[in-house]
Design a protein around this nucleic acid. Structure first.
Lengths: 193, 193
DNA sequence: CGATTTTTTGAATCATATCAACGTACGTGG
DNA sequence: CCACGTACGTTGATATGATTCAAAAAATCG
């Protein structure tokens, strides 16, 4: 299980992990299993853990004042699940995080996380992830502002084919900021050509 | 000029800056003046500098395939201007960054930036900024997806009154993802009540 | 198999974009 | 200091993309 994480880290670093690093990482990361539909985080709670997904599919969402669910992020194997703001600042989260399939995570608490930040490859990865995340968010803002629902869905299918396969359509709709009804119609029109 | 930056850093750190740190920072940051409408970065270029704004107002935008400008971020004094992805990865940027007022910046190149990352208060600040940025982006995604144009403008006015004062209306419209026409109408309706 | 979740569909409605035109303000060079 | 050009804001009419709602069909699960 930890092997998957070592392999993941390897992609972000020039040199292989030392055995010492591996020990530190193994100590810090505990396995956690979630069943489909089980929550990892509830709105109002403090997000105590940062989770790396080794198996399954997770979804982070919030509920707006009209009661509509808004998907903030989706993740499968080799992605992270966490409300980082709540995790870092110990503030109550506005997000829910739930398993959309039976899932297996490697989790660390804040203390363990700080410990791992001393492991250089880990810190490098976190840094790289920050930039990637930021750029992806900017991309999402731009597309939600300037593209039609159809274009956004099209882009999504091409960028994240895996997620299309793993998550139900109404969840993808809520990620893209369109209704399930509209997404259904988009697919219908798509087939007609 | 550097004093402003020291004061800014101070807000992110528990202890005051040491004199040594101040020297390092002063060495790394060079002043740069821009006139209104002058560009700090052009799309296609590599973003060579990370800039801290000590005076003036800057705007980062991209131009979509229809030729429409899309404002990615706005900044005044005590904000940053940079395409961080391009800056860090040395890739060509898709963004323009321009001065919307006569402006004064403190800029560092990538090398100087890495040097400064060894100054703890600076590194702490960068880290804190990353989380804040991420949270703000999530907020922006959520609001562009789930709120009406009027609600978004209203939120914006309350969150960033300073920016409303400093930037022309059509730029704010493009930040919010609405047309200048619609924003004008929103304000008209607003006055009628 | 029944129960629940997920997807599809049509009709009416709504928010916002588009386009073209006009008004206003601004600042730069003569 | 005026005049002209450019930038900025407003407006109305029309078009369009997407939502809403209610209902039914289809798929999935225990």
């Amino acid at each position: 299980m930890h092997e998957l994480f070592f392999a993941y880290l390897r992609k972000y670093t020039s040199a292989p992990l030392s055995d010492g690093d591996k020990v530190l990482i193994t100590k810090a990361l505990s396995p956690l299993k979630l069943r489909k539909r089980q929550h990892f985080l509830l709105a109002g709670e403090h997000c105590k853990y940062l989770a790396f997904i080794t198996k399954g599919a997770m979804r982070q969402y919030r509920v707006d004042d009209k009661g509509i669910e808004l998907t903030a992020s989706l993740g499968v194997e080799n992605w992270w699940a966490c409300d980082r703001e709540s995790f870092v600042l110990s503030t109550p989260s506005i997000y829910y995080i739930e398993a959309c399939e039976d899932s297996e995570l490697l989790v660390m608490n804040r203390e363990e996380n700080l410990e791992l930040m001393k492991v250089k490859p880990f810190a490098e990865m976190v840094n790289a992830l920050n930039y990637k995340n930021n750029a992806a968010n900017q991309q999402r803002i731009a597309s939600s502002i300037s593209l039609t629902a159809e274009q956004r869905y099209n882009d999504f299918v091409h960028s994240y084919p895996e997620l299309v396969r793993r998550f139900p359509q109404h969840i993808i709709a809520s990620y893209l900021g369109i209704t399930k009804d509209t997404l259904s119609r988009i697919k219908r029109n798509w087939l007609q050509r």
